[in-house]
Simulated assay, not measured.
Amino acid sequence: MLIVNNLVKKYGKQNAVDDLSFELKGGEVVGLLGPNGAGKSTTMKCIVGLLRKTSGEITIGGYDHLSVEAKRLFSYIPETPYVYDLLTVKEHFQFIGQAYGVPNWKEKTDELVQLFELEDKQDKLGRDLSKGMRQKVSIVCALIPDPQVLFFDEPMIGLDPKAIKNTRQIFRNLKEAGKTILVSTHLIDSVESIADRIMILKEGKIVGNDTIANLKQQFVQEEGTSLEDLFLELTKDV
């Protein structure tokens, strides 16, 4: 569903993303982990077309990632959620539903509004929303078109504990529906229970890419090792 081949993103002479290659299959939830500055957000922004890659090839559903066909297949939830200042919450959902030609957008939205407890916020303007509320609106907008692939960049930041729990449940529901999800985060425990596979970045390179169990076996081989221990082992300064 997603193929990234030899992706490079340079800033001057510095490689922010250094020759990354990986694939995501349909119905797979993959956690993209790494310390600050490892290249997680840069990788994701190159994939969705917000940053121009220096070199490499990226396809989504068999289409070039910058094509209209590819853009129809995915939704992107950025780390800093963007909403329109002068649209109400309800108008955001209407705009997305009509822009994507989603016939049942109202029914779908009602379900998501209840899940994220936004019923009493629907007439609020975007400029009056807290970061957590903006994040909820951003997630709902991303789900309305029923995308095949979803890219979440630090989705849990700003959410309250109940919303985090609901977001994890949405990940499980999306996985059961055969959707493909790439989640970038450095909140390790937020992805451990939902990810089929983990990719760990360090200085723009992949230093681990496998199931959590296999990575533990390869790199730690100690009973009771947590994902956090594994992460610290793989990203430590040599």
Score class of each variant (00 low, 15 high):
Asn209Asp: 14
Ile200Glu: 01
Ile200Pro: 00
Leu182Cys: 03
Leu201Asp: 09
Thr185Tyr: 09
Gly208Glu: 05
Gly204Asp: 10
Thr235Leu: 12
Arg197Tyr: 00
Thr211Ser: 14
Ala213Tyr: 06
Glu203Gly: 10
Glu203Ser: 15
Gly224Ile: 09
Leu234Ile: 03
Gly224Asp: 13
Glu223His: 00
Ala213Glu: 14
Ser193Lys: 15
Glu222Phe: 06
Ile198Arg: 06
Glu228Gln: 06
Leu182Ser: 03
Glu192His: 12
Gly224Trp: 10
Ile188Phe: 05
Leu182Lys: 07
Leu182Gln: 04
Thr235Ile: 02
Met199Val: 14
Glu222Lys: 14
Thr235Met: 07
Ile198Glu: 01
Lys205Gln: 14
Glu233Met: 10
Ile206Asp: 08
Ala213Gly: 00
Ile212Val: 12
Glu228Val: 11
Thr185Trp: 07
Glu233Ala: 12
His186Trp: 00
Val220Ala: 05
Ser184His: 01
Ile206Met: 11
Ile188Cys: 06
Leu215Asp: 08
Gln221Tyr: 03
Ile198Leu: 15
Leu201Glu: 09
Ile188Gly: 03
Val183Leu: 13
Ser184Met: 01
Asp229Cys: 10
Asp189Lys: 13
Val183Ala: 03
Leu182Gly: 01
Ser193Thr: 15
Asp189Asn: 14
Asp229Lys: 14
Lys179Val: 10
Thr225Ala: 15
Ile206Lys: 12
Ile181Asp: 00
Glu223Met: 07
Ser184Gln: 00
Asp189Ala: 11
Ser184Phe: 06
Gly204Arg: 02
Ala195Val: 12
Met199Glu: 03
Lys202Cys: 08
Gly208Ile: 05
Ser184Arg: 02
Gly204Trp: 09
Asn209Ala: 03
Gly208Trp: 05
Val207Trp: 04
Asn209Arg: 02
Asp210Gly: 00
Ile206Glu: 13
Ile194Lys: 10
Gly208Asn: 02
Lys205Ile: 05
Lys205Asp: 04
Glu203Asn: 15
Asp196Asn: 13
Lys216Asn: 09
